[in-house]
Simulated scan of single mutants.
Amino acid sequence: MENKITSGIWFVFIGLILLLHNLHVIDFNLWAVFKYWPLLIIIVGINLMVQKRTYGPYVKIGSNLVLLAWVLYVGITSKSSSWQESIFTQRTENYNDEGDSAAYANTVSVPFEENYKEAKFEFNGGAGTFDFQSNPSDDLITANSPDKYMGLNLVTDHVGDKHTITLNAKRIGKKSKKNIETVNLNLQPNTLWDIELNYGAATLSGDISHLGFKKLEINTGASTMELKLGTPKIALSKITIETGASTIHLKIPKEAAIMVTHSSVLSSNSFEGFETNSKGLAMTKDYDKAANKYEINVEGAANTFTISRY
């Protein structure tokens, strides 16, 4: 019974923190407390030691409340108060952001050339709605924001046949965050990609099933993502997800070979069509024999991670 009480306390705490942050009542730096996640192991150990003791329920509830009070203190008093943008600050300071909207536009693009065999794409964004596609076009990448209050800043570099692109998306006006229009992005499918997505309390969706990539890295918090992937185009495509209090849904073809390792805390995972699904590891049939495969690693806390097959 006391286990349900302590779990309920955690979920109520996380829900209240996210609600108050989104309503701008508090500024909570979630990332500042992530590095202390081993404290959860200590709490679990305490719970096990006092299990079945007469005073056990009081110790469990008391220790969890003390930890949550400390988490609240660290999250609110950390120097970087806007946790959705704090992980991107170091990146955006170097990208010709002069403190106004001069470096930002509503439409940006990079022309595609046949010698661009590989490309690295880094996306940095805060709150917003983003749609990713992978349709053939004359551009290596295009991004368009119908919302005049959402600015896009594109930085490019290339050496030989490899192109590096950094796209920053941020609010450039004081318009309310309600009814934000979708930012549309398209990546050239005739290029092999290395993708890094860094964003805050946003909604990200799309169809990149035509895209081949070596690595897809997702760093986010309190967000929603739904992406449709295709079969892996190379021997090993790695997907790394580090997130907190988020909902992640990946749609992957039934014939794709997949291995998932996960060490998330207080999270819910659902993997459709997997032959092996033990604690911390899930694997599809004949994964080791497949020529091309996905390797997925998930870390974080209070997430809902789902893989469905089509």
Rank of each mutant, 00 (worst) to 15 (best):
V66A: 13
T191Y: 04
S145D: 04
D97C: 03
I234K: 06
H21L: 00
S268Q: 14
Q133P: 00
G160K: 10
L72K: 03
S268C: 07
I218P: 00
Y287W: 13
L40W: 14
E181V: 09
G125V: 04
G8N: 09
L140I: 12
K177N: 15
I296R: 02
S223V: 14
S268A: 14
A105K: 15
R309M: 12
G125L: 06
G173N: 10
K175S: 11
G200F: 03
V110A: 11
I76Y: 02
S7Q: 11
Y199D: 12
L266T: 00
T306N: 14
M150H: 05
T6I: 15
D138K: 15
T142N: 10
N106D: 12
F305E: 01
I41T: 13
M1N: 11
R171D: 12
K238R: 13
W10T: 01
G212E: 00
Q84L: 02
S82K: 07
P189S: 05
T284R: 01
S176R: 11
T240V: 08
P38F: 03
K233I: 13
S223H: 08
S278M: 04
I46R: 06
W70F: 15
N115V: 07
I43D: 03
I61T: 10
D97F: 04
I234T: 13
K293F: 09
G125Q: 08
M225F: 03
K175Y: 06
N292R: 07
Y149G: 15
I218L: 08
E2Y: 11
S205T: 14
S145W: 12
R309F: 10
L204I: 11
K175G: 10
K35I: 15
N297W: 01
I296A: 01
A291D: 13
T164W: 08
I218C: 00
L236V: 09
P146T: 03
G280P: 08
N219S: 11
I165V: 15
S145A: 06
N269C: 04
L18I: 15
K251W: 02
E181P: 06
K289F: 14
T306R: 12
G212Y: 03
T304S: 15
A257I: 01
W193K: 07
T261S: 08
T304F: 05
A302N: 10
F121V: 06
L19F: 15
N179I: 09
S237T: 11
S134G: 13
D147Q: 10
S82E: 07
L167E: 06
Y55K: 04
M150K: 11
V298S: 00
S268P: 01
E85D: 12
S80M: 05
N22P: 09
V183P: 04
A127S: 12
P232F: 11
